[in-house]
Design a protein around this nucleic acid. Structure first.
Lengths: 190, 190
DNA sequence: TAAAACCCTTAATCTAGATTAATGTTTTTT
DNA sequence: AAAAAACATTAATCTAGATTAAGGGTTTTA
């Protein structure tokens, strides 16, 4: 069962009783996304967060010149959401779509907050993964400010070897903040 | 009392009883930092988080060429920490120092986690401000990727007019990811 | 199975912002 | 009050990476 992947993820941080597992289960929705289909679109109220159990999604911002800037990839075992819209209830500024045919477990913000009330353990879990999220994005920001593109790419490969194999170059370039042409140059001894 | 500023900050998100306030108070330490003195240095175990009640601090990374890249400013009513070291217990890679004579309330990670056990309301508070932190730094990353320096500076001024007045240009430049020379040019009709 | 649609490569040219350097001002320390 | 340190300005030169463009490959869709 795909929900077991989520249970395992949660149990890296807290211990769950069977009752808590079934409670969580009741608050989730299973959904599949065909390649290139949207989970979130700019302008929507994105009050769902997704835990990917199969496939790959990405969140990205489209700038005023139409260029895409990728904030996050999410393969199996990763959460993805427009955190701004999800937590504040305002309109999303990000898009989230599937780069492969994808299966995910969705939780609404409403259900998440209910879960926190009923069982503070879940609040602890999300507090921890949110802390980890901050650390990881702070690190990325500092890398963007202090490293040249070839070094950033080397770190990407080291950190996410699977993504480097699995994703098209265009997507990796849009994540690193460079053009696909320049990434091509880097890859072929630039 | 300077701790009232923290109570007010917390009560934007949750309601506190007098008992909870005094409990929190017991877990905090008051400390002052003279201008240019360190709260955290690279290589230390930075197991304290600071809530600034007066003055200004900054967290920054020093790259291999000796350049400083500022991750965060914290004036009155802001928390600041090396989140990586604070949450994982590993050695800090950031420095945090005072840009002005500063007063702050410190909480150790140990006490914070105790507080969460004793009173889950505090876990909720920190979950919320951590969520807000993610949103804000995600936004900054996307701005860095999608905007030119003059636009980033304009947004900075709009978002933090006080910091723009209060901080030297060198510090603002190190936050925006540009040189002070180029910021000078931008400011004088660039 | 053809034709879109997407994806990758290479190379010439261009530009946002860095670097260097010189000069002046303001703030801090002695 | 002097000296030192930090801060700001301006301008010439330089460079990491963008842009443009053209050609070839591969995967999807009809």
């Amino acid at each position: 069962m795909s929900i077991d992947l989520l249970f395992q993820n949660i149990e890296k941080h807290i211990v769950l009783t069977d009752k808590e597992k079934s409670m969580l289960s009741d608050f989730l929705e299973e959904k599949t996304f065909r390649k290139r289909h949207y989970f979130v679109q700019e302008g929507q109220y994105a009050n769902y967060s997704a835990f990917v159990t199969k496939g790959c999604m990405r969140s990205y911002y489209v700038d005023t010149n139409g260029f895409e800037h990728i904030l996050q990839f999410a393969i199996e075992d990763w959460w993805i959401a427009d955190m701004m819209s999800y937590t504040t209830g305002k309109e999303a500024r990000l898009n989230i779509d599937a780069l492969e045919n994808t299966e995910a477990l969705l939780i609404s913000r409403e259900n998440q907050l209910k879960l926190f009330e009923v069982c503070p353990k879940f609040e602890k879990y999300f507090r921890i993964i949110t802390e980890n999220g901050i650390v990881s994005i702070q690190n990325r920001l500092l890398e963007n400010m202090s490293l040249l593109a070839p070094e950033r790419y080397a770190n990407f490969v080291k950190k996410y070897p699977i993504l480097n194999q699995r994703l098209p170059q265009t997507q990796i370039a849009a994540f690193l903040g460079i053009t696909p042409e320049f990434l091509s140059k880097i890859r072929n001894r630039g």
